[in-house]
Design a protein around this nucleic acid. Structure first.
Lengths: 243, 243
DNA sequence: AATTTTTATTTGTCTGACATTTAAAAGTCT
DNA sequence: AGACTTTTAAATGTCAGACAAATAAAAATT
């Protein structure tokens, strides 16, 4: 674990990279304690604040956790899906909002991934997950629901659909795509008519999942994708000509 | 942008979160300059090292970049796909290696996502991407190739397949799944016989993509998934009984 | 007017110090 | 002896002040 003292600036970045490499390569294993900040400062021949900056970089990626007190210190963190989720959602949200990814592109990706889960979900969804979907559909049908609440319920519905595949890697991968789109979806005004349509398709999906009919789920998702893109297009057109 | 001075420890984490929220919510826009470290220290009523730790956390997530000198400072970074890729790959790799996700689970997720790209790729793949795939197939057929090099070429092949969908969000999402599996794949010994089989399936895929035949691509991917899982199973069995 | 020099600003790093937390060791009482 | 309390030491969290280095703008010079 060495750093290059010749390259002048950003020592903390170099140190962070050195430790990160040690973790990713397995030289540092889960729950192993790193040397204390003072020892690391000695090893790398830098000051403690510099070491601390490096450790904070790693903490931001959930690669380590720190504990105060005697026998405290920095420990290699067991990365859990929850931490990975939230990081992925932050990254995906920023990618969508800053990089001017079109709604169509994001939408296409989301439904492509979701359809990939559908066949697995048709085989494996638990009664509990099905109940969640039904409950969200019921919520979506409530009259006084705000657009935001409708969107949030939509996300919960699709989340349950994805989780139904019983594959945590898929759930993790998709969490970003689905949740990152929510800010964009929130810009859509859901009329009573469009809600009705979406709820009908959601019901189709739930029915097909209950019956274990993968191809019907797929068909409903295709329709839902087309409809979502149409709604977004209408919003874009109204914006262009707000008369 | 406020922090809670009552909760005692981890001021830098709170400050980082406050700034992160400002970026994600759009209150700070791309290329906007943050106040100088001294000003931030004033605003948050903390010392400069604490502010610096917060900024390093954000830098680790590629949310900001810093520049020295007059009119330097910390700027909101335009997150690019490349940065997002590498973060996703690091996260995914750690998730797979530390969280004891089974090879089957990872493999299932990977091929589910990849099949999601296949139909799009059949419509849109460029001649260039097709040529890349052919070139990788050719490389995979070379006799003296090491297992690692074979794996790397495999990744490149699948990467081209995914990129063929022409959807950067999908490419980004899948980069993690495909590349994170490489360390696991590297544990497989590819015999001449198994390479032959894989190359045949790769050729099927390339042919089907050239013909724009989505369902054939899908069928080949299903076969490839089954075969990959079988190979991994053989490795696992040999390990259990290494006689 | 063009070039060079100076200057001010900002991040990068260091030193040293104190506060706070925490587990273990030492001490004390029953 | 055992249970409880107190002390202690180690570690992170935070602060203050200083200097180095880079860099762009301003000033000075040719």
């Amino acid at each position: 674990m060495k750093i290059d003292p010749r390259s002048p600036a950003d020592l903390s970045a170099q140190i962070a990279q050195a430790i990160r490499d040690a973790i990713v390569s397995g030289r540092l294993i889960v729950d192993e304690r790193l040397p204390s900040e003072a020892e690391l400062a000695d090893q790398f021949q830098v000051s403690r604040p510099t070491v601390r900056e490096a450790l904070k970089r790693l903490a931001a990626q959930s690669l380590i956790r720190t504990q105060r007190g005697a026998s405290g210190g920095a420990f290699v963190n067991r990365l859990n899906f929850e931490d990975a989720y939230s990081q992925q959602i932050t990254t995906s949200t920023l990618l969508l909002s800053m990089n001017a990814v079109s709604f169509d592109t994001a939408c296409e990706a989301r439904y492509a991934l979701e359809r990939a889960c559908a066949s697995l979900s048709a085989q494996r969804r638990t009664p509990d997950q099905l109940a969640t979907m039904r409950a969200e559909i019921f919520r979506q049908a409530q009259p006084g629901l705000t657009d935001e609440a409708f969107c949030a319920s939509d996300v919960a519905f699709h989340r349950a659909l994805v989780d139904g595949a019983g594959n945590p890697v898929l759930s993790y991968q998709l969490a970003g795509a689905v949740e990152a789109m929510q800010p964009l979806m929130n810009m859509i005004t859901f009329t009573a008519r469009s809600r009705e349509e979406i709820i009908a398709l959601h019901t189709d999906i739930a029915d097909a999942l209950e019956a274990g009919d993968a191809s019907s789920v797929d068909a409903a998702l295709v329709k839902l994708e087309l409809y979502t893109r149409k709604l977004a297009q209408d919003v874009a057109e109204q914006r262009r000509k707000p008369a």
